[in-house]
Structure formats: C-alpha cells, structure tokens
Amino acid sequence: MVKTSKFDAADYLKTPAAIAAYLTEALETDDPAYICVALDAVARAKGIANIAKATGLGRESLYKAFSGTSRPEFDTVRKVIGSFGVKLVAEPIGEEEKSG
C-alpha cells in the first residue's frame, strides 16, 4: 500500500516571494473563506505565536479570524499581511477581466 501524507501549503511557504504568489492567487479567487484559509496557512508557516507578537493580536483571535467561518476586520488582515513580509497592492483590471 502506498503511504501518502496530507498536503499542507504551509510547508512550502518559506520565502516572501512564495507567500506573495500564494496570497495573490487566493485573493484572485474573490472567495473570502478561501482567502482566510490562505492567510491561515501563511500564519502557520510563519508561526502563529510570531504573528501574534508582531501584530499585537492574540493567538486565539488569529485562529478565530482565519478559521474560514468568520470575516476578519480589514485592519487585522492588513496587520497580519504586513507581518508576513509582503504588502497588498492594487493593479488595474485587464479589459478581458473587466468585461467578464
């Protein structure tokens, strides 16, 4: 029998470039629950305790905010993303995306 292990994106999010690419893909889905799952994966990769210390937020509130069942405040998301070593940016929507 072949042994498999559960995939965890957190195992592959080691660099700011990998984190930025992963979060960009998640944000492009426009699915709030999936975006929270992605934020949770990055937070676990960086260490929830480290994120809590860097943002001044409690570990429990971070777990709750990114559980996928709640809608975290924008300020929480902004602080957490900054603690990941990446930033949010805006870019124009391409004509093909705008018309779809």
Rank of each mutant, 00 (worst) to 15 (best):
Val37Cys: 01
Lys98Leu: 14
Thr15Ser: 12
Val77Pro: 02
Ser5Asp: 15
Glu97Arg: 09
Ala20Ser: 12
Thr15His: 08
Ser70Met: 08
Lys98His: 04
Asp30Phe: 14
Ala33Tyr: 03
Asp8Gly: 00
Phe7Ile: 15
Gly100Ser: 10
Ala18Arg: 04
Val42Glu: 01
Lys46Trp: 00
Ile93Leu: 14
Leu57Tyr: 12
Glu91Arg: 15
Lys46Pro: 00
Val2Trp: 02
Lys53Asn: 10
Ala33Gly: 06
Ala38Thr: 08
Ile48Gln: 06
Arg78Gly: 00
Lys87Glu: 14
Pro16Val: 09
Arg59Ile: 08
Gly56Phe: 06
Gly68Gln: 01
Phe7Gln: 07
Gly85Asn: 06
Gly56Ser: 10
Lys6Asn: 08
Ile35Leu: 11
Pro16Asp: 08
Tyr63Asp: 06
Asp30Ile: 15
Phe84Pro: 00
Lys46Leu: 13
Ala38Asn: 10
Gly85Tyr: 05
Leu39Arg: 01
Ala26Gln: 09
Met1Asn: 13
Glu60Trp: 07
Pro92Leu: 11
Lys6Thr: 04
Ala45Leu: 04
Asp30Ser: 12
Leu27Thr: 15
Ser61Arg: 14
Leu39Ser: 01
Thr29Phe: 05
Asp30Trp: 11
Leu88Asp: 11
Asp11Asn: 08
Pro72His: 07
Ala20Gln: 03
Thr55Trp: 02
Lys14Cys: 08
Ile35Gly: 08
Ser67Pro: 09
Gly58Glu: 13
Ala49Val: 14
Arg59Val: 07
Glu60Val: 13
Leu39Glu: 02
Glu28Cys: 09
Arg59Cys: 05
Asp11Phe: 08
Gly82Tyr: 00
Lys98Phe: 11
Pro72Trp: 02
Val77Cys: 13
Ala9Trp: 03
Tyr34His: 11
Lys14Phe: 04
Thr24Gly: 06
Ala33Gln: 15
Leu39Cys: 10
Gly58Ser: 11
Pro16Lys: 09
Met1Arg: 07
Gly85Asp: 10
Val77Lys: 03
Glu95Phe: 12
Ser5Cys: 09
Lys87Ile: 13
Gly56Asn: 09
Gly68Phe: 01
Val80Cys: 02
Asp40His: 11
Pro92Asn: 09
Ser61Leu: 09
Ala10Ser: 15
Lys6Glu: 07
Gly58Leu: 06
Thr15Arg: 12
Pro32Asn: 09
Ala43Gln: 13
